[in-house]
């Protein structure tokens, strides 16, 4: 299957030079990939729309600071969206605990079908390495990445002291890195 149209560093370079048409094209290509990320973390459509809007204005303003060293343009933009979505989520006082999926549901997502073969291989590698973690630390890492949980929220949800949560996250990151580099 041919690759979806690609968000290239060149396109982002044109955005950095103030090219509105390039920015419209960037939005057309990237927004359908970034919107689900905002939806997943904020769990609310109106807030996800707000996050996407803020993020693209930030992309327009910060495009000149993009450097391929920071990863592909889509990865760079995903980080911007994720952080804004997480901030949006943290601002809400009553975080609906019910919205977070169970460990099984999260793992199903990670092990889920992907229609792009290359992504499938990367996802399989990540999934294999996540499987090597103990169940609770794995759940902590997934809740943090997939739903934007803070250390405090993880402590509450997993009924575990915050110090333990922090060391789970640290050890899990170290183990993931070793597993994926190996």
């Amino acid at each position: 299957m041919p690759d979806a149209p690609f968000v290239t560093p060149e396109l982002l370079g044109r955005v950095a030079r103030g090219d509105r048409a390039a920015f419209a094209e960037l939005y057309r290509l990237a927004s359908p990939k970034l919107f689900p990320v905002a939806l997943r973390i904020t769990q609310r459509r109106d807030l996800a729309e707000e996050v996407l809007q803020e993020s693209f204005v930030a992309v327009w303003n910060q495009a000149a600071s993009y450097d391929p060293v920071k990863g592909s343009p889509l990865i760079w933009m995903t980080t911007i969206v994720r952080h804004r979505a997480i901030d949006q989520r943290r601002r809400r006082s009553n975080l609906a605990d019910a919205t977070a999926g169970s460990d099984e549901a999260l793992l199903a997502l990670v092990a889920g079908e992907s229609d792009r073969a290359d992504r499938g291989a990367e996802l399989a590698a990540l999934s294999r390495c996540l499987d090597q973690l103990e169940p609770q630390p794995r759940q902590a890492v997934l809740l943090a990445y997939v739903h934007g949980y803070t250390h405090e929220e993880l402590a509450g949800r997993l009924a575990t002291p915050i110090g333990t949560i922090k060391s789970w996250v640290r050890r899990s990151l170290e183990r993931l890195k070793r597993c994926l580099d190996g």
Partner: peptide, 30 residues
């Protein structure tokens, strides 16, 4: 470089999401 490596490690989770087009009003607001 450190940030890029981590972002690339977790990116497949986001890439596995089915695309969802945002409503037109988002682009108009931008």
């Amino acid at each position: 470089a450190d940030v890029r490596e981590w972002a690339e490690i977790f990116a497949p989770i986001d890439a596995a999401e089915a695309p969802v087009a945002p409503p037109q009003r988002v682009w108009r607001a931008i």
